[in-house]
């Protein structure tokens, strides 16, 4: 500690404003306010990039449209069948398009190795995880706004109901929380994009199944509310558990 005191120049740079008993103390970085400042600045940065390029959202949306049209074509002989599977199709579209968003969001940090810049900044690594979850969630939610609109028109079911939106919102959080964690791994492997769906989809199935069941109930003619309620609590439990696991284990994925 004393060494730092000696080594610091006497011009009174702003970093050493805090001097106690002659020993400069490197600012403890773990304060709550600086944590959230870092999180929001990373989110801001991701949104800014998207604002400039519009790449993530447009790719996700185009992909979703292709999936929907393709399935409609496959099921076109039987419109009722298409309606029957529409909730499953909605969720399948979301998780498949979601992998594109996840890959894009995390490969941005690998392009010029900016992840290193985040890692040497005085930022809690868990904050990086949270920020990535927030920004990918925002993109996925924006995609879902469009999808709800499209699905309501194509399949003539009330996907815009508040309960359905709630399920979409909660499901997205859990999906992205698991997704950011898994993508942070796959992006550092040889197979990269190929590996992500293989690892991620089985892990999020326990979340997607109740989400799809709840959504199907909500948009059905006579929704059974106890199914919906129990599914929503399951989804919320998944969200919390995976967020907690991701929050605490993410640092292990970026430290070497």
């Amino acid at each position: 500690m004393a060494k730092l005191a000696l080594s610091l120049p006497k011009r009174g740079r702003w970093q050493v404003a805090e001097q106690s008993q002659g020993i400069p103390v490197a600012r403890p970085q773990a304060t709550t306010s600086s944590f959230w400042t870092a999180v929001w600045s990373i989110v801001w940065k991701d949104l800014r990039i998207e604002q400039h390029t519009r790449q993530t959202l447009s790719v996700m949306l185009m992909f979703s449209l292709v999936v929907v049209v393709m399935f409609n074509f496959a099921l076109s002989t039987d419109l009722d069948a298409a309606r029957q599977v529409s909730t499953g199709l909605l969720w399948a579209t979301i998780i498949l398009a979601g992998t594109l968003g996840l890959n894009r969001s995390l490969s941005i940090e690998r392009e010029n190795q900016t992840i290193d810049a985040l890692l040497i900044a005085p930022v809690d690594r868990r904050g990086i995880y949270l920020a990535k979850v927030i920004s990918v969630t925002i993109f996925t939610l924006l995609l879902e706004v469009a999808l709800v609109f499209i699905f309501t028109i194509f399949f003539n079911k009330p996907f815009w109901q508040p309960a359905a939106l709630l399920v979409l919102f909660l499901g997205t959080i859990g999906y992205v929380a698991a997704g950011v964690l898994v993508t942070s791994m796959t992006i550092q492997t040889r197979s990269r994009e190929v590996l992500l769906p293989i690892l991620l989809l089985p892990i999020v199935l326990p979340l997607i199944l109740p989400a799809a069941i709840a959504t199907a109930e909500i948009v059905s003619l006579q929704p059974q509310m106890d199914t919906v309620n129990s599914s929503i609590s399951l989804i919320a439990a998944y969200d919390l558990a995976i967020l907690a696991v991701g929050f605490f284990s993410y640092p292990f994925l970026v430290e070497s």
């Binding site: 698991a178 898994v182 550092q188 892990i203 326990p206 998944y238 995976i242 696991v245 292990f252 994925l253």
Partner: peptide, 18 residues
């Protein structure tokens, strides 16, 4: 080792929830 450890934890949590 590190990645596999994280993955094994996530998987277990996910299976338990299922």
């Amino acid at each position: 080792g590190r990645f596999a450890a994280v993955y094994v934890i996530v998987s277990f949590v996910s299976i338990i929830l299922a």
